[in-house]
Design a protein around this nucleic acid. Structure first.
Lengths: 239, 239
DNA sequence: GCAATAGTGTCTTTCAGACACTATATC
DNA sequence: GATATAGTGTCTGAAAGACACTATTGC
């Protein structure tokens, strides 16, 4: 152990960007800070990495602890380590993003009073360098703690990048979904509308989808067919 | 400081995957371990993150210290934090990849006797889950220390993913290069050959390239025109 | 002129965008 | 049957693959 103790050690935390797609926007779970630093501002749920758990395990634990959810798509995002990002001392944070269907994330909000589901203002499609802003229910911008605006920005960027070649979008939908819902998820994440026939062709050509034969109910007009993701290889965890 | 000290802290290091493309293969700089653990095996150059430097600064410092190089494309890759990855204790490592033209990497090798430039065996194109193997000059497989095979695997995966939409490939070439050299870099990273006219069209259509009017010399046949990357926005650092 | 690669013209194929059309559910 | 959306057929245009052809340099 002696070599390792020659250097002062930083604290290491894991922060979670717990995202979902609601009717109209991309959302993320934020928690109001009740103590210094950044008291009263909004932060990503997070916690210290225990000495005997892996980073992935820490992320899962925080997901279960703070949000009381399981089965989310979870994936390491980026590690933030600016020396002054936490006024209390040197804290390096490994950010993860986690994706859940909207109804599941909505439940989580009521597990604690200090939680909110913020709407994320998508920077204009294709633009670089614009920071994300988060809004509360009343559409007022939320003041974020630490460098969490940067974390949110990177999460959206990564989500967009993975949309085409991975199965991230399905993590934001219930088990059974219509192609219109799937297209809505894509459109919300990308911040632009897509061509319907082309989108349907592209999705069906991936071979990822399976028709269930069931249809949605309660529409008032012709109901769409429900699809589900074919059981297969687990989502690849690579960025 | 009190809250931070309630938890035992891990050590945090930065490891560098210093990559290049040689005549026939993708290469990475490895360093022979001279002490326990993994004495005699090959490791990525790395070092502890100092308490007052950022992760990016640590990566730059290690690049300068161990490899005595500057100006490389450098980018955070992934953070590895399995509790038992280092037998000495809890060590979390933030892996970076750095890209240099082959002639610059070759110089670095001679800065220290314990360095080698390993050839990386590209897992079959499109395949997932295959581990990378590294070979020395004599084509014998090198035994890697820690979880560095995983780090190399992820570095190649990331490099491939960024090839099409970013300017990574140019970081592996000298300032002036021919389109054939550029195609060779792409082919080596992807592990498959590409169609020449299509590749040229695609590259010239990006608008990234600028003809210099100069031609390569010493070919023995018709020399190709030298291009360079148009000066412009810095390479985007996002994964 | 010969060798060898640089660089291009063009045909075909593939796939996305556009748009209109048909189909089918609720009421 | 009216309405509103599901779902499809088909034209067009952009871009990649394939292949052959011309161009240019060193020797």
């Amino acid at each position: 152990m002696t070599e390792l103790d020659k250097f002062p050690k930083p604290s290491v935390t894991v922060d979670l960007v717990l995202m979902s797609v609601s009717d109209a926007s991309l959302t993320a779970l934020l928690q109001k800070r009740t103590s210094s630093p950044f008291k009263g501002r909004w932060a990503l749920p997070g916690g210290f990495v225990q000495i005997d758990e892996s980073l992935d395990q820490a992320a899962e634990r925080i997901l279960a602890d703070k949000a009381r959810m399981e089965g989310a798509w979870i994936e390491q995002l980026y590690t933030f380590g600016s020396p002054r990002r936490d006024p209390r001392g040197r804290v390096i944070t490994v950010a993860y993003f986690a994706l859940l269907p909207h109804h599941q994330l909505a439940q989580a909000r009521h597990k604690a009073v200090d939680l909110t589901i913020a709407k994320l203002d998508i920077p204009w499609p294709g633009e670089e360098g614009d920071p994300v802003t988060a809004h509360g229910d009343n559409a007022k911008p939320l003041s974020l703690a630490f460098d969490h605006a940067d974390v949110l920005t990177m999460a959206i960027k990564r989500l967009r990048g993975k949309l085409d070649y991975s199965k991230v979008a399905f993590a934001l939908l219930p088990d059974r979904f219509t192609l219109r819902q799937l297209q809505h998820v894509h459109e919300t994440i990308l911040g632009q509308s897509l061509n319907k026939p082309a989108f349907r062709r592209r999705m069906l050509d991936t071979g990822w989808l399976e028709a269930t034969g069931q249809r949605e109910t309660g529409t008032g007009f012709r109901p769409a067919e429900l699809f589900r993701l074919k059981p297969g290889k687990t989502p690849d965890t690579a960025p």
